[in-house]
Design a protein around this nucleic acid. Structure first.
Lengths: 227, 227
DNA sequence: CGAAGTATTGACTACCTTCAAAAATTGTGG
DNA sequence: CCACAATTTTTGAAGGTAGTCAATACTTCG
């Protein structure tokens, strides 16, 4: 069953990354699969579900009336999407790859989930960690240069999903250049130019368009913090 | 008693703005006053308290090692500061004016506040609303021009603390230009130039440096969304 | 193989920053 | 209350980073 409701949130940021763990498994949940490119929910829809990502990657974003877009987060396994403070989603969420989700029906709780204290506590922990991650991203958007943004982004993914071989670390980019651009507050051209520059400097390699090999992790980390 | 512990969060953003309301008044709390310019807490300190702002304004911010700063939020009455996903604060928090606070001692709860379900639920509601507000601010930082940023910022304050007289709305700016600049990801010069431009266009007046009179609210709203 | 979409590269522009100085505001001591 | 210093804000000029517009290359898919 492919859900087509609205909003979510999540953030894959630096250091701290408390994962959502639903130990109690409150009962009012079920597993669902969504293929790549399909919507989980849209801005404005009734917020019926909270989505726990088990496999795959999702993208949450917001649109301005003039078409500008801000990607809010890329949701990886362990993240949740669709948390709302009211009865509506306030962003769009789409599967970037095939995803496996656990859906928690909100009618089973009320707006504040009072009937499920354990689930509630997990959500609070997750939300607090999320706030912390989003604060890191504020620095990214507000105070970092293009190079620092791209380097920071690559490091986040490397630390979270990178496969280590020898001194290299390899990972996939399930999102396209424009997703990265709209996540970092840049244009696709700047993303492309910056990746080309990092490649020219021997810091990374791009075996495929959507695959990154980090050759000099320490150099990449240095670039993430200085101009 | 002037607390000098660390970190917090909050955000004063658009439309939705669920205020924190501690109805239960869990008992493990007390009132405190902090004068203007004093610290509530610092990045890295033990997160012993959650701060409920009752009067005045606080500023939370993060510093990069090279001195760049990102202001995360301005906390007004009804906001909370100091929420943490672990045992430490991850930002600095300072009183911009004299503030009255209700302090909730974290030792009374544990990390996830399991012993206080009502307080917990209020926190979750607040955190979810906070995440929503922060997502709005992502758009601000990532996709808006300087004029749009300043206009959006003024509208947020106008809607939240503005005093209506006739067709004008007046409010104070308890923060200085550099605080605004570091909140919006701009420089103080750009803030100043943009305010000057808005004044020249008759959209606002600045009777004092830290006082704003919005003469054309609809024009200001238009500027907040277009280039 | 050709078409469509995505990514890269190039040339030019513009917005915001940086550097610098003047003006305004605030605070302190006589 | 005034004078002077210190800080903050405003204004000006010049420069740089990232954006825009445009063309080419690459990838994917029919």
């Amino acid at each position: 069953m492919y859900v087509t409701s609205p909003v979510s949130f999540f953030e894959n940021s630096q250091a701290v990354c408390a994962r959502f763990v639903n130990e109690g498994n409150a009962g009012h949940s079920h597993i669902s699969h969504v293929p790549a490119g399909h919507r989980l929910f849209c801005d404005g829809d009734d917020a019926d579900y909270i989505y726990e990502i088990m496999e795959g990657v999702v993208r949450t974003s917001k649109l301005l009336s003039d078409g500008r877009r801000q990607v809010l987060s890329f949701g990886y396994p362990g993240d949740i999407a669709g948390l709302s403070h009211d009865h509506f989603y306030h962003s769009d969420c789409e599967a970037l790859s095939g995803v496996t989700l656990r859906l928690h029906h909100k009618n089973a709780f009320n707006v504040s989930f009072e009937n499920e204290p354990d689930f509630n506590n997990e959500l609070l922990k997750y939300a607090a960690a999320e706030v912390n991650n989003m604060q890191e991203h504020f620095i990214m958007l507000g105070r970092k240069s293009a190079t620092e943004k791209v380097a920071s982004f690559l490091i986040t993914l490397m630390d979270r999903v990178g496969q280590k071989n020898d001194c290299n670390t390899c990972f996939e980019l399930p999102m396209c250049r424009s997703d990265i651009a709209d996540f970092l507050g840049l244009t696709i051209e700047t993303i492309s130019r910056t990746l080309t520059k990092l490649r020219a400097e021997g810091v990374i390699e791009l075996p495929k368009k959507q695959q990154v090999l980090v050759c000099k992790p320490s150099a990449l980390r240095a670039l993430a913090e200085r101009n």
